[in-house]
Each structure stands twice: as structure tokens, then as C-alpha cells.
């Protein structure tokens, strides 16, 4: 115990007259291990009490067991994770476990955010868990699922790809005119396909596909104006195959007319 805390404890005992169980003048102590003390965490924490002590918090929580022992299941690393609990669960028993939980939550949340930037309809598979370790495992699985989905979306040209550099604003209600097509070709010749990076458009004419991002068929989910990025023939076809599956799934679920 730190000296300052010990001094404060002794000072408090003398001030409150609770030294009546011992005899200061004779130095005889009548130590009673059953005598209650003010619980830790209070301003008078650790001090002897005659038994009538109640903290402000205890007054509001009648029935709760009060103890000055360090609780082994009350560790709260931060309100943010506690407030996002969807279901009752155990609490981290160690700071290490709490740290792993926080990291798992952050990783899962970030991965899900990145996926939903490209596909707002995506949802991770739901998990059921009863323990903190179960929740950590579920969050890690969710992060892996989201990261796999993100790679799938990128590979299929859903959202600007890893090679996306220059783009042009997408014309509304019409196709690219000759000037816009020429600019899209220059962007493709300079930076390649925005999804795979190839410098070969793969078309007979040598024109680059003008790929709308977000894809026109998905754009009802986004409020941003579309941009045109250069796309090669292979990536455009792969994107089309993916979108046809995605739209059909929504239609069959009744989420699209």
C-alpha cells in the first residue's frame, strides 16, 4: 500500500473516532477481521466502518452485494463495446481478453464497413455465442467473412478497383460521346483497367469499356454521382456475371421489382 494512502487511512480512523476498537495510548489493538470496511472505489475506500456505511451507488442499487474485493467479472474496458451488446453475455475476465475482444470488434466493424461501401445489401452470417471467447471467435469469423467478400467484390469490379486512377463524370441518360470516349481511352492507356491493371482493353476496336461506378444496376443504393473508369473486356464481363447473380438474388427475395 502506498504510504500516502496508509497515512490517509490512519488519519481517517483518528478523525472519525473509529479507533475505539483499539487503544492508541497503550498501542493495544483489538483487530476484528469481521469488522466491515468501506468498499474500494469510494472516497473512503478501505476504511473501517461501524457497519452502517452505504455508498451513494449502493443506495441506488439495493440488493447488490457490496465488497471491497476486486471484482473478477466487472472489468469494463470502455463504454463503447458495452453499449453495443446485442444480447446478454459474459464479460472479459482479463484485460488481455478485453483487448482481444476490442480488437476483434474493431476488425469486424472495419471489414464490414468496407464491404458495405461497395454492397450495402451485404450482411454477415449471424452467430450465436454465450461466452466472451465465443463472441471473440464470432467476431473474428465475421471479419474473415467480410474480408473474403471484399476481395470478391474487388475482383468482380464492384466499386473502384485497386488500379483506379483517373475517371470522368458519367453522363446522365446517354452514352459516352466521342470526346468522353477518347478521354476514357486516354485514362485506360495511362492507368490500365481499374480492376486488374492490364493495359490491353481486350476489345476489337481498342476502345476501353466505360465502367460506371457505382455500377448502374446497383446505383439505386448509392446517392453519389457516378464516375466512368476504364475497364477491360474480361473484367467487364466478370462484373456483369456477378451483377446478374446479385440482382436475381434480390429479385427472388422480393427486394427488387
Amino acid at each position: 500500500m502506498a504510504f500516502s494512502k496508509l497515512a490517509g487511512l490512519l488519519s481517517g480512523l483518528v478523525r472519525t473516532g473509529d479507533w475505539n476498537r483499539g487503544d492508541v495510548s497503550t498501542g493495544r489493538h483489538h483487530y476484528d477481521p469481521t469488522q466491515p470496511r468501506v468498499p474500494a472505489g469510494n472516497s473512503d475506500g478501505g476504511q473501517w466502518t461501524a457497519g452502517g456505511w452505504r455508498s451513494e451507488r449502493a443506495s441506488a442499487l439495493d440488493g447488490e452485494v457490496l465488497s471491497d474485493a476486486t471484482p473478477d467479472n466487472e472489468w469494463r474496458p470502455g463504454a463503447h463495446y458495452a453499449s453495443r451488446r446485442r444480447a446478454p453475455r459474459g464479460r472479459p475476465t482479463t484485460p488481455g481478453q478485453a483487448a482481444r475482444l476490442t480488437i476483434a470488434e474493431a476488425r469486424a466493424s472495419e471489414a464490414e464497413r468496407k464491404v458495405r461501401e461497395r454492397d450495402p445489401t451485404w450482411r454477415a452470417t449471424q452467430s450465436i455465442y454465450e461466452t466472451v471467447e465465443g463472441e471473440i471467435a464470432a467476431l473474428e469469423a465475421k471479419a474473415r467473412e467480410a474480408e473474403t467478400r471484399l476481395q470478391e467484390l474487388i475482383r468482380h469490379g464492384i466499386g473502384p478497383g485497386p488500379f483506379a486512377r483517373k475517371s470522368i463524370p458519367a453522363p446522365v441518360g446517354r452514352r459516352l460521346n466521342s470526346a468522353e470516349r477518347a478521354e476514357n481511352n486516354r485514362n485506360g492507356d495511362f492507368g490500365g483497367c481499374h480492376t486488374c491493371g492490364t493495359k490491353n482493353p481486350g476489345t476489337a476496336s481498342g476502345n476501353w469499356f466505360g465502367d460506371h461506378q457505382h455500377a448502374t444496376a446497383m446505383n439505386f443504393l448509392f446517392s453519389k454521382a457516378q464516375e466512368i473508369f476504364p475497364h477491360c473486356a474480361t473484367c467487364s464481363a466478370r462484373q456483369g456475371g456477378w451483377i446478374s447473380q446479385w440482382i436475381r438474388r434480390l429479385k427472388l427475395k422480393g427486394r427488387l421489382p
Binding site: 474480361t234 464481363a237 456475371g241 446478374s244 427472388l252
Partner: peptide
């Protein structure tokens, strides 16, 4: 995307997965 889908029924059609 420079292709069309030809099928008898949207609901039951099994779409190719190895395109293009």
C-alpha cells in the same frame, strides 16, 4: 457489359459461374 442472358426462366435458371 457486352453480353446478354438467354434463358427460359429467370427463377430456375442456373447461371454460368465461370464467365467470361
Amino acid at each position: 457489359n457486352a453480353f446478354v442472358i438467354i434463358a427460359g426462366d429467370m427463377k430456375s435458371a442456373k447461371l454460368p459461374e465461370d464467365y467470361p
